[in-house]
Design a protein around this nucleic acid. Sequence first.
DNA 1: TTGGAGTGTCAACAAAGCTGACGTATTGTG
DNA 2: CACAATACGTCAGCTTTGTTGACACTCCAA
Lengths: 165, 165
Amino acid sequence: MGEGIRSDSLLYLTDEQLRQGIEAMYFAYRGFTADPDRILESMAYGRAHHRAIHFINRAPGTTVTNLLAILGVTKQSLNRVLRTLIEDGLVESRVGTSDRRERNLYLTEEGISLENRLSDAQRARMRAAFRDAGPDAVSGFRQVLESMMDGELRRQYKSLRENGQ
Amino acid sequence: MGEGIRSDSLLYLTDEQLRQGIEAMYFAYRGFTADPDRILESMAYGRAHHRAIHFINRAPGTTVTNLLAILGVTKQSLNRVLRTLIEDGLVESRVGTSDRRERNLYLTEEGISLENRLSDAQRARMRAAFRDAGPDAVSGFRQVLESMMDGELRRQYKSLRENGQ
DNA sequence: TTGGAGTGTCAACAAAGCTGACGTATTGTG
DNA sequence: CACAATACGTCAGCTTTGTTGACACTCCAA
């Protein structure tokens, strides 16, 4: 306190800067979910359905337990969402081959089609933001977000990333 | 398509990179809310109470209508939250001086104390992430988030920023 | 064969959003 | 002054998405 500005400038760590970061996160997340939400509300679906569809698409054949770990909800909560998606023919649940207790989840054609609509909308906004900000800013964005994750979530995030490419 | 890598490298705009950005946003937001959520669940409060407390603290004396605009919820929804906060003595609602229809909202001592606990926890995580990533990354983080906001939200975000400093 | 893991389902409940309708106090306008 | 509009609060009812707790079934492995 009252020691003036350090030569290596830690001004970006002031409470005011941190508060701006917090508010930026809050408002940006609302923008981030706005486009898919608009598409979903025209059907009988919500954000929970989007998340399930997203991660099933990302890791086809994933089990219910694995999905539970990624989404961090109870199986009762996930099951309600999953049931409607299966009934509506967007998701297929196949009995596991090696372990027949498990259910492997896949998107149907129709499920893939909805996933594409949703992620196209979300990617469009992300792409615009990335392009506006440029590659260096994007790198910083990714770095800060990764540091902000909880340990277990970061592990899952990284494991998904390896999966993708 | 199939034209190879451009010399100015737009590789950071590939669908895979965008998808990683989307997932980073999802996992980071969960980390972002985790600490306050833990504090809140020990009381009878939720995220909605936190948001109200945050923005009342940020703009003391703000009106209900203004808070509605910032939070983007209905007055019925906000009122439920606000009522419990007033009953519990965390928020004070004073009749407006110039316009007696308005209610100016303030945190009480107790309200300020809770706000501090919540934002200390949230800032600690943000500070750690900022420090890990460094000033340039933080600048990029802020830039991308701002681009990701909807027009109206961006306006509100900037107006809050002017207010703060 | 038996214990435990993975899965699904029933019931009951809570938080936090929504719409619609209505009442009251206050203010601004014609 | 009369009246419309604004700001706020509240009642009732509904939805989504989360929670616990209890229980049953299938199937794997010791």
